[in-house]
Deep mutational scan, measured.
Amino acid sequence: YWITCCPTCDVDINTWVPFYSTELNKPAMIYCSHGDGHWVHAQCMDLAERTLIHLSAGSNKYYCNEHVEIARALHTP
């Protein structure tokens, strides 16, 4: 949970406070499906809480801010 998930990541173990109602003692993470995949903080991706809950409940693929354009290009005929 205490990783630098992207170039603009500002989640710090020493200063972090809950942002989403689902967070208690660690930041919400979401899995990016690009390549071998990697974890990113939901807050760093500017996800709305409703979107985070929807993604967490389903089996939808998610692409982080850095990889979403690549994913779109691969799926565009």
Rank of each mutant, 00 (worst) to 15 (best):
Tyr31Met: 12
Glu23Ser: 01
Leu52Cys: 07
Asp46Glu: 10
Leu52Asn: 04
Met45Val: 05
Asp36Arg: 05
Val17Gln: 14
Pro18Leu: 11
Trp2Arg: 03
Tyr20Asn: 09
Thr22Pro: 04
Val11Gly: 01
Cys32Gly: 00
Ser33Ile: 11
Tyr1Gly: 09
Leu55Cys: 13
Tyr31Ala: 06
Trp2Met: 05
Lys26Gln: 06
Pro7Arg: 01
Thr15Leu: 15
Lys26Phe: 08
Tyr63Gln: 11
Val68Ser: 09
Cys9Thr: 01
Phe19Asp: 15
Val40Thr: 03
Leu55Phe: 10
Leu52Pro: 03
Ala73Gly: 15
Pro77Gln: 12
Tyr62Trp: 14
Thr51Cys: 11
Gly35Ser: 07
Asn14Gly: 14
Cys44Gly: 00
Ser21Pro: 12
Cys44His: 00
Tyr63Thr: 15
Ala28Pro: 04
Glu49Gly: 04
Lys26Leu: 10
Ala57Glu: 11
Trp39Gln: 06
Ala48Val: 12
Cys6Ala: 15
Ser33Cys: 10
Phe19Ala: 04
Arg72Thr: 14
Leu47Ala: 09
Ser59Arg: 08
Thr8Val: 06
Val40Asp: 02
Asp10Ala: 14
Asn14Pro: 03
Ile3Leu: 08
Ile70Lys: 07
Val11Thr: 04
Ser56Lys: 13
Asn14Gln: 04
His54Ser: 12
Pro18Phe: 02
Leu74Ser: 07
Ile70Tyr: 14
Glu23Arg: 00
Tyr20Met: 03
Ser59Tyr: 11
Asp46Ala: 14
Ser21Trp: 03
Leu55Arg: 08
Asn25Gly: 12
His34Arg: 08
Tyr20Phe: 07
Tyr31Asp: 04
Thr8Glu: 14
Tyr1Asn: 05
His67Glu: 04
Phe19Asn: 15
Ala73Trp: 09
Cys44Glu: 00
Glu66Asp: 10
Gly58Leu: 13
Gly35Cys: 01
Tyr62Thr: 07
His54Gly: 13
Thr15Pro: 01
Cys32His: 01
His54Ile: 07
Trp2Ala: 03
Val17Ala: 15
Cys9Phe: 01
Asp36Leu: 09
Asn25Met: 05
Arg50Ala: 15
His54Met: 09
Ala57Arg: 11
Ile3Cys: 08
Ala48Glu: 13
Glu69Phe: 01
Phe19Gln: 03
Glu23Met: 01
His41Cys: 04
Lys26Arg: 12
Trp2Pro: 04
Lys61Leu: 15
Glu69Lys: 06
Leu47Met: 14
Gln43Ala: 03
Ile53Pro: 07
Ser33Asn: 10
Met45Ser: 05
Ala57Cys: 08
Gln43Pro: 01
Glu49Leu: 08
Gln43Ile: 02
Val40Ser: 02
Arg50Ser: 15
Ala48Asp: 10
Lys61Arg: 04
Gly58His: 13
Tyr31His: 10
Val68Lys: 08
Gln43Ser: 07
Val40Ala: 04
Met29Val: 05
Thr8Trp: 02
Gly37Phe: 01
Ile13Ala: 07
Ile13Leu: 09
Glu49Tyr: 08
Asn14Glu: 15
Ile13Ser: 05
Asn25Ile: 10
Met29Ala: 02
His75Trp: 09
Glu66Ser: 11
Pro18Glu: 04
Ser56Pro: 09
Leu55Asn: 10
Val68Arg: 07
Leu47Tyr: 02
Arg50Met: 13
Ser59Asp: 15
Glu66Cys: 13
Pro77Trp: 05
Val11Ala: 01
Asn65Pro: 13
Ile13Gly: 06
Thr76Pro: 14
Ser21Ala: 06
Leu55Val: 09
Ser56His: 11
Ala57Ser: 14
His38Ala: 00
Gln43Leu: 06
Cys44Lys: 00
Thr51Ser: 11
Glu49His: 10
Ala48Tyr: 09
Ile30Lys: 15
Gly37His: 01
Arg50Tyr: 08
Ala57Gln: 13
Met45Thr: 03
Leu52Trp: 12
Asn25Asp: 04
Glu69His: 11
Ala48Met: 11
Val11Leu: 06
Met45Asp: 06
Glu49Asp: 11
Arg50Gln: 11
Tyr62His: 03
His67Trp: 02
Met45Gln: 13
Cys64His: 00
Ser59His: 10
Pro18His: 06
Ala42Glu: 00
Gly58Met: 08
Leu47Ile: 08
His34Phe: 04
Ala42Ile: 02
Ser33Gly: 10
Met45Tyr: 04
Pro18Gln: 03
Leu47Asn: 03
Leu47Ser: 05
Leu55Asp: 07
Arg72Lys: 13
Asp46Asn: 13
Cys64Tyr: 01
Glu69Ile: 02
Glu49Asn: 06
His54Tyr: 06
Trp39Pro: 04
Ala73His: 15
Gly58Asp: 13
Ala57Met: 07
Asn60Ser: 10
Ile30Val: 03
Asn14Ser: 03
His34Glu: 09
Tyr62Ser: 02
Ser33Thr: 11
